[in-house]
Structure formats: structure tokens, C-alpha cells
Amino acid sequence: MEAELERLFEKMCDPKESDAYVFADKLGIKADEEAKNRLIELVKGEDWEVAYLSCRALSKTHWQEEALDAIFSVIFDRKNKERQGAFVQILEEFDLSQRFVDIFKIYLFGNFKASTLAKDYLDGVEFDITPRTIRKAEKHWKHYLHNPEDEDSVAIKKSEIEPMLLEMKELFS
């Protein structure tokens, strides 16, 4: 089995392989603990295409939370600002119900593509919300208001976020 996993890694990482995503899917289905750890290292690596394929492979495993931790760390790393959108796009393959605050942060601080995709997740995913989740979101919202990267988007985000936060608070009052 290990030889087969190694072959799948080689095929997935081969820049000339036109069906690399197929090998990523197969690798994810067959991954063991060692393969999972290697995939997570590739997610954090310098080659963003291999990192993306590794995310795809990890989405097929039962190590979703570990994979999401690695993916979010890559998304929030400033050096990946130009590539955020691709990593946010692959999140559609994961269960995001426990990740409201992470998605909210991407919406606030991500590049245009990442922010747009995060807004779609905020609108479409059924998140598990707690009072603590709301407090964390409010903290990031206040930080955004005091440090906006794009002054033009503050009014738009304000019109979307303030009603959302109010509605979530009303759930617990």
C-alpha cells in the first residue's frame, strides 16, 4: 500500500500531470496518518498548486479539522494574500459549520476573491453559533472598523455585518 501512496503523491505533485486532481482525490481516499501529515506539510509549502491539490486530497480524509487548521493558517499568512482565493475556494469541500469566525475573518480581511467567496459561505453554510462565537466575531469586526484595508468597502460591509451580528445576538436574548 505504501508504494501505491507514494505513486499517488508523485502523480499529484507532477506539474506535467493533467489529471493531478484525480490522483489527489485517490490519495485522499487512501491516506493514512503518515500521508495526512505529508499532505499538511505540502499545504504549507511554497508550491501553491501542490498545496491546493493537497487541500483537495485532505478534504477526502476523516482529518477534516486538522486539515482546516492548516488551510486557515495558509489563508491568513500575509505572504499568501495573492493566492487566498484558491485556498478559500477549496473550503467548499469541507464541513465549515464550526468555522464561522474563520470565515468571518476572511470576509473582513481577505482579498477581493477570498472575501466574495467567504460572503457566499456566510450566506449559505449553517454555522453552529454560540455567544462566544458572537463575541469573537464582534472583536474582529471592531478591529476591522479601526483598521480597514479598503476604506471604500467599510459602508458595504457595515450594511451587511451589523444586521447579521444583531440577528445572531437576538438568538440568545
Rank of each mutant, 00 (worst) to 15 (best):
M1I: 13
E4W: 09
E4S: 09
E6Q: 15
R7P: 03
R7L: 15
L8G: 06
F9V: 03
K11V: 00
C13D: 10
D14Y: 07
D14E: 08
P15R: 04
P15Y: 08
E17S: 01
V22P: 03
V22Y: 13
V22N: 10
V22L: 14
A24N: 11
D25N: 08
D25T: 07
K26T: 07
K26R: 15
K26V: 00
G28Q: 02
K30H: 10
A31K: 07
E34D: 12
K36L: 12
I40G: 06
V43S: 09
G45T: 05
D47Q: 12
D47M: 11
D47H: 08
V50D: 09
C55K: 00
C55H: 05
R56C: 10
A57P: 12
L58P: 08
S59G: 15
T61V: 06
H62C: 11
W63R: 06
Q64S: 10
E66L: 14
E66I: 05
S73Y: 03
F76H: 11
D77V: 01
D77T: 04
D77M: 00
R78D: 14
R78Q: 12
K81S: 04
E82C: 07
R83D: 10
Q84S: 12
Q84R: 10
G85L: 03
F87R: 04
V88I: 10
I90C: 06
I90K: 07
E92G: 10
E93D: 11
F94T: 02
F94V: 02
L96V: 01
L96W: 01
S97K: 15
Q98R: 15
R99W: 14
R99L: 02
F100H: 04
F100S: 03
V101T: 14
V101Y: 04
I103G: 01
F104E: 08
F104M: 05
Y107K: 02
L108K: 00
F109Q: 00
G110D: 08
G110P: 03
G110A: 03
F112I: 07
K113L: 09
A114V: 06
S115H: 04
T116H: 13
L117G: 03
L117S: 05
V125F: 06
V125N: 08
E126K: 13
E126M: 08
P131E: 09
P131I: 01
R132F: 13
R132K: 13
T133H: 11
I134D: 06
I134Q: 03
R135K: 14
E138T: 01
E138F: 00
E138K: 09
K139G: 02
H140C: 04
H140I: 01
H143W: 08
L145T: 04
H146W: 07
P148T: 02
D150I: 02
E151M: 11
D152P: 05
S153D: 14
V154T: 09
V154A: 12
A155Q: 13
A155W: 08
S159H: 05
I161D: 01
P163L: 03
P163E: 01
L165Q: 00
L165H: 00
L166F: 08
E167K: 02
M168V: 00
K169N: 07
E170K: 12
L171M: 08
F172K: 02
S173L: 11
